[in-house]
Amino acid sequence: MVKLCPRCGSPLMPVKKDGETVLKCNKCGYEVRTDKRREKYSVKYQVDASKRVVTAQATETKETKLSPEEREILSEYYEVLLEELEREEGSSEESD
């Protein structure tokens, strides 16, 4: 439960002072001692959704097993790709 300052109505924040916790108003400086036995005070911050940073979540990749046919198709694809790259390099060297 949030306690409010009786002077200005701002929320009182827990602050350590002389080894004990006091509730202090950041606006007007009002302070009140806390009862350690009754309540535990902590500060939690909630960031507005418009100011949050979107991050990516890493997931583990699943091991895919290729069939022999799929392996052969990929092998042929890479062979054709390498041939085309060699052909393009050869034609660019001839034009230079």
Rank of each mutant, 00 (worst) to 15 (best):
M1I: 11
K3I: 06
K3W: 05
C5G: 00
P6I: 02
P6T: 03
P6N: 06
R7K: 11
R7V: 09
C8A: 07
C8S: 07
G9D: 02
S10K: 15
P11C: 04
P11L: 06
P11D: 05
M13S: 07
M13A: 07
M13G: 01
P14R: 01
V15W: 00
V15G: 00
V15T: 05
K16S: 08
K16M: 08
K16Y: 06
K16N: 05
K17P: 01
K17I: 09
K17Y: 02
D18V: 05
D18L: 06
G19H: 10
E20K: 14
E20P: 01
T21S: 00
T21I: 08
V22P: 02
L23R: 01
L23V: 02
K24S: 12
K24E: 13
C25M: 02
N26M: 10
K27H: 10
C28Y: 02
G29K: 04
G29E: 04
Y30F: 15
E31G: 01
E31D: 05
V32I: 12
V32H: 02
V32R: 04
R33F: 11
R33G: 11
R33D: 08
T34L: 02
T34F: 00
D35E: 06
D35R: 05
R37P: 05
R37T: 12
R37D: 14
R38I: 04
R38E: 07
R38V: 04
E39R: 12
E39H: 12
K40M: 04
K40D: 08
Y41M: 03
S42T: 08
S42C: 02
S42H: 08
V43R: 00
V43H: 01
V43L: 07
K44P: 01
K44L: 08
Y45L: 07
Q46I: 15
Q46W: 13
Q46V: 14
V47G: 03
V47P: 03
D48Y: 09
D48R: 10
D48I: 03
A49I: 09
A49N: 09
S50F: 05
S50L: 05
K51G: 12
K51H: 13
R52A: 13
R52E: 11
R52V: 13
V53Y: 01
V53C: 04
V54P: 05
V54H: 12
T55K: 10
T55W: 03
A56G: 14
A56Q: 12
Q57T: 14
T59C: 07
E60P: 06
E60Y: 03
T61D: 13
K62I: 13
K62W: 00
T64W: 12
K65A: 09
K65W: 11
E69Y: 03
E69W: 04
E72G: 03
E72S: 10
I73V: 11
L74A: 08
S75R: 14
S75D: 08
S75T: 14
E76I: 09
Y77A: 15
Y78G: 04
Y78P: 02
Y78H: 11
Y78E: 15
Y78D: 15
L81F: 15
L82V: 07
L82Q: 14
E84L: 14
E84A: 13
L85D: 05
L85A: 14
E89T: 12
E89N: 15
E89C: 10
E89I: 15
G90Q: 15
G90P: 05
S91C: 08
S91V: 11
S92A: 15
S92P: 01
E93Q: 10
E93M: 08
E93Y: 06
E94F: 06
E94G: 10
S95N: 11
D96K: 11
D96N: 10
